[in-house]
């Protein structure tokens, strides 16, 4: 059990996260093979919104900001927010702090859906990929939930084991698709599996931003119900909550969020697990705070991971999924050690 927190920490959390997110976005826009002064980058962005001529950047530098760095930064933030919110909701839904879209196999299912679309339906329109990722993500979520639930309660060991099995099955499916894929599709698939934000385009960025905002609003409506669900399903029902409807709704929304995130960026692990934990340490477990701060912290963490991904081995780039795994895996081990008396 983590400690409850002071109201001063809670009050400062959101302003601090917003400030850090602003600084991080400027850093992200100015970092890359072509280094751009952060203030000039900010001026260039303001120039696109107002008639004022604040920036002296060359046209090609403006072009890089508008078509490469800005969508990439926003995509990293939207995906980070999506994964962190879905992680927070899944942990509430399963009443277990170790639940995560990656660990319970939902990301793998969504990746299989995206891979099926890419390899088997190369002529499909752009938006077919997130739709396919969503359908497979939803199918995986429902399957795992059914496997792990019995008599209205969800067994966590069963949940994790079912997640391992489904992830292995999805991995085999992706492997098979790798085997039969064309060279172009194979390259895209490989990038996906490691998680990549480098290829950000405005359509995916806008879709991810819209999904992050939409899910934030919808999740927030269920924040109090999620709090009550942590007491237990029976207790939540006694409080007048339609727990079956709540679970169904949240599972679909999580699958939608993870499906879109995976379609846009591939498998990026540990954000959904690590971020809600960090936020709970600062702001406690009440979902109306947890969701907003997880969204902001998830956006910040993935944007920072993306900056590291393109800086650590510059001029080459690392897939951002590798960076989050390198940071997140040790943290997950730390959580397991800390909670092993409860899990063992």
């Amino acid at each position: 059990m983590q400690r409850a927190v002071t109201s001063k920490q809670q009050r400062l959390a959101v302003p601090c996260l917003l400030l850090l997110l602003t600084l991080c976005s400027l850093l992200s826009i100015s970092t890359g093979p072509l280094s751009i002064d952060p203030l000039q980058a900010l001026g260039s962005l303001l120039d696109t919104l107002t008639p004022a001529n604040l920036s002296t950047l060359a046209p090609h530098e403006r072009l890089i900001i508008e078509n490469v760095r800005l969508p990439r930064t926003l995509l990293a933030m939207a995906t980070g927010a999506l994964l962190a919110m879905c992680g927070a909701v899944m942990q509430g839904l399963f009443r277990n702090p170790l639940a995560d879209p990656g660990i319970i196999g939902v990301s793998s299912g969504a990746a299989l859906g995206a891979a099926v679309c890419l390899v088997l339906l190369p002529a499909a329109p752009t938006f077919a990929v997130p739709v396919s990722a969503f359908v497979f993500g939803l199918g995986t979520t429902v399957l795992i939930y059914r496997l792990a639930s019995h008599n209205g309660s969800t067994s966590v060991p069963l949940l994790l084991l079912a997640g391992v099995a489904i992830a292995a099955l999805a991995g085999a499916g992706i492997g098979l698709l790798n085997y039969i894929a064309s060279d172009t599709a194979l390259r895209d698939l490989s990038l996906w599996q490691m998680g990549a934000i480098a290829g950000a385009t405005w359509p995916y960025t806008l879709l991810s931003l819209a999904a992050a905002l939409g899910l934030f609003v919808l999740f927030r409506r269920d924040a109090r119900s999620l709090d009550a669900l942590l007491l237990g399903e029976s207790e939540a029902r006694h409080l007048g909550i339609d727990t079956q409807g709540l679970k169904r709704r949240l599972v679909i929304l999580c699958a939608l969020g993870v499906g879109i995130a995976v379609a846009a960026t591939g498998i990026i692990g540990f954000i959904g697990l690590v971020v809600p934990h960090l936020v709970r340490m600062v702001s406690g477990a009440a979902h109306h705070k947890l969701l907003v701060q997880s969204a902001l912290a998830g956006a910040l963490l993935l944007a920072l991971a993306d900056i590291l991904a393109r800086s650590l081995i510059a001029p080459a780039e690392m897939p951002v999924g590798l960076v989050t795994a390198l940071l997140g895996a040790p943290f997950f081990v730390f959580l397991l050690i800390k909670q092993r008396h409860k899990l063992g």
Partner: peptide, 28 residues
Amino acid sequence: ACRLGVLPQHAKLDFPFQVAEVVAMGAF
């Protein structure tokens, strides 16, 4: 729910809540 309340024998919470937050859940 406004008429009938149940006190469970055990209520396990694996997440960090303040006492006031737990009690306030009754206002749902």
